[in-house]
Nucleic acid binder design. Structure first.
Length: 253
DNA sequence: ATGGCGAGACTATCTCGA
């Protein structure tokens, strides 16, 4: 079973890229983040044999799940704050497997209300995942975590040291997810440096390979045992009008 | 050494992202 995650930075602008990637790679599931609109072009994916579920909002955020298999929606918002209207969470079941697609808040600037919102969101995520662990549910959570877990996940840790993506509080909250018994899938199979999933549009970051690793899959224990492979597909980042993120792809037996 | 982007929205400069 091939499962992928990709922050497309506007599904409207990246529709051809996403459709072509699905047709080329035939994932069993694609988790998409940053739709940036209320609507989702389900017909385009229906035409190539994929079902779609999504949560959208005007201009910002938005997450979708695509699959050629039936998609059973379990939750379309992260529990723990009824006042939170941001479209960042979609929990589904596909082929009996629980899959959670997240677009975790960026959190910058750190002296604004956005940083505590990020940390509260991460605490709510931890509560939800702890609940799933207690229930014995086998799951993967994937998406744009907006967290650089370790210095080696970043081309220049010094340049990022006061950024919400790399602040000690953000990294500690990420480790708290791991302490639920979850595993960072990419690092099971690949400990090499420079395994980035995002490169800024500015300053020639892509040609210079000045990236960061912020898109992740975290797996519950029995799913980790079933992990066959996990790779970053850099090809879409090189396209014209590319997203600033590129897909992360894992294979489960 | 420095500056360097892109998308969406109350179409013209804003906010937001990372």
């Amino acid at each position: 079973m091939k499962i992928a995650t990709w922050n497309v930075n506007s599904i409207k602008v990246r529709l051809d890229h996403a459709k072509n990637w699905v047709e080329t790679n035939h994932p069993d599931v694609l988790m998409i983040q940053e739709l940036k609109g209320e609507a989702f072009p389900s017909e385009t994916f229906q035409a190539i044999g994929y079902n779609a579920e999504f949560v959208g909002q005007k201009a910002y955020n938005g997450v979708a799940v695509l699959s050629p298999h039936p998609i059973n929606v379990i939750l379309n918002r992260l529990p723990g704050d009824d006042a939170d209207e941001q479209a960042r969470y979609l929990e589904v079941e596909v082929k009996g497997l629980r899959l959670i697609n997240i677009y975790l808040p960026n959190g910058n600037p750190v002296d604004s209300e956005k940083f505590p919102y990020k940390l509260q969101w991460m605490a709510r995520l931890k509560d939800r995942l702890a609940h799933l662990r207690r229930e014995g549910i086998v799951f993967a959570v994937g998406g744009d975590f907006n967290v650089i877990p370790e210095p080696e996940d970043c081309h220049d840790p010094k340049a990022w040291e006061n950024d919400a993506l790399f602040r000690p509080e953000s990294r500690a909250a990420f480790r708290a997810l791991l302490w639920l018994g979850l595993t960072d899938a990419l690092r099971v199979v690949n400990n090499a440096p420079r395994q980035y999933t995002y490169w800024d549009y500015q300053a020639g970051a892509w040609p210079a390979d000045k990236g960061i690793r912020i898109d992740h899959f975290l797996l519950s224990p029995t799913l980790t045992d079933r992990l066959q492979d996990c790779v970053i597909d850099r090809d879409p980042r090189a396209l014209d009008k590319a997203s600033d993120h590129t897909p992360l792809v894992m294979t489960i037996d």
